[in-house]
Computed example of a mutant assay.
Amino acid sequence: MNWQSTLEILQDNLGKALADTFFMVSIATVVGVVFGTLLAIALFLTQHHLFSPNAAVNNVVGFIVNAIRSMPFLILLVVLIPLIQLIIGDPYTPLGGAIALSIAAIPFFARIAENSFTEVDSGLIEAAIATGAPTRQILCDAIFPQALPSFIRGIVLTIISLLGYSAMVGTIGAGGIGDMAIQFGYNRYETGVLIAIVVLLVVLVQAIQWIGDLIARAVTH
């Protein structure tokens, strides 16, 4: 193992690889949390007996969420290539990877957020309904604050999962640390590069988890 060669590769490529990974994961996290939360609200309201149960809507939305979640990300990525190509022209870019990650993140986070909402005490919801508050106010003032710690931990879990998924995006050459690991660590047999990337991923995951736990504890009622 040539450490000098490893250092040169890391110096020349690691910065851009990290920037591409940050770009993909950031966009996918925002999109996943926003649209996943909306889906979670729809699932929660249409199955909770205190609101507006609607089995048909709940089953349709739940089926779509489960169908996407059931596909391994690598297979989903390959399936999405024609769609991404139609949208942006070249799917083999960090933006193409971000679109694929976003589509995977939405149903993933939807189920996490739904579970966070269902953990809220029904007695609290009944009390809020008894005051005559509208559904929007109950969601914002009663359910969200109580679900917030679990919600934040769900965001952390989503970010960590997307970080792992972003490495798979490298298999199609869309950039990021996964692409770097395959191009240099695997194809060129630079074991040092692979070791460095694995260590970096471990450090990143630990840091994200630590920060997320701190925030979750801070907002716990």
Results as ranks from 00 to 15, higher is better:
Leu74Thr: 14
Leu74Cys: 07
Leu74Tyr: 13
Ile75Val: 15
Ile75Met: 12
Ile75Gly: 05
Leu76Trp: 06
Leu76Ile: 00
Leu76Cys: 01
Leu77Asp: 11
Leu77Lys: 07
Val78Pro: 01
Val78Tyr: 04
Val78Met: 13
Leu80Met: 12
Ile81Cys: 06
Pro82Tyr: 00
Pro82His: 02
Leu83Val: 13
Leu83His: 01
Leu83Ile: 13
Leu83Phe: 15
Leu83Met: 10
Leu83Tyr: 04
Ile84Thr: 15
Ile84Tyr: 06
Ile84Asn: 07
Leu86Ile: 03
Leu86Gln: 13
Leu86Asp: 07
Ile87Cys: 01
Ile87Phe: 10
Ile88Phe: 05
Ile88Val: 14
Gly89Tyr: 01
Gly89Gln: 03
Gly89Phe: 01
Gly89His: 04
Asp90Gln: 14
Asp90His: 13
Pro91Asn: 09
Pro91Ile: 13
Pro91Cys: 09
Pro91Glu: 09
Pro91Ala: 15
Tyr92Phe: 15
Tyr92Val: 13
Tyr92Trp: 10
Tyr92Glu: 09
Pro94Asn: 05
Pro94Glu: 05
Pro94Ile: 03
Pro94Tyr: 07
Leu95Ile: 12
Leu95Ala: 15
Leu95Lys: 09
Gly96Lys: 11
Gly96Asp: 10
Gly97Val: 10
Gly97Ile: 11
Gly97Gln: 12
Ala98Ile: 11
Ala98Thr: 06
Ala98Val: 11
Ala98Cys: 11
Ile99Met: 05
Ala100Thr: 12
Ala100Glu: 09
Leu101Ser: 09
Leu101Thr: 12
Leu101Ala: 12
Leu101Val: 13
Ser102Asn: 08
Ser102Pro: 15
Ser102Gln: 08
Ile103Gln: 05
Ile103Tyr: 05
Ile103Thr: 03
Ile103Leu: 13
Ile103Lys: 04
Ala104Ser: 14
Ala104Gly: 14
Ala104Lys: 11
Ala105Pro: 07
Ala105Phe: 05
Ala105Tyr: 04
Ala105Ser: 12
Ala105Lys: 06
Ala105Asp: 03
Ala105Cys: 10
Ile106Ser: 01
Pro107Ala: 00
Pro107Leu: 04
Pro107Phe: 04
Phe108Glu: 03
Phe108Thr: 13
Phe108Met: 14
Phe109Gln: 04
Phe109Asn: 08
Phe109Thr: 14
Ala110Pro: 00
Ala110Thr: 01
Ala110Arg: 01
Ala110Val: 01
Arg111Gln: 09
Arg111Thr: 05
Arg111Ile: 01
Arg111Phe: 01
Ile112Ala: 07
Ile112Val: 15
Ile112Lys: 03
Ile112Glu: 03
Ile112Tyr: 01
Ala113His: 00
Ala113Ser: 03
Ala113Arg: 00
Ala113Ile: 03
Glu114Gln: 06
Glu114Arg: 03
Glu114Ile: 00
Glu114Thr: 00
Glu114His: 04
Asn115Asp: 14
Asn115Gln: 13
Asn115Glu: 12
Asn115Tyr: 04
Ser116His: 09
Ser116Gln: 06
Phe117Arg: 02
Phe117Ala: 09
Phe117Tyr: 08
Thr118Gln: 14
Thr118Tyr: 08
Thr118Trp: 06
Thr118Ala: 11
Thr118Phe: 07
Glu119Tyr: 10
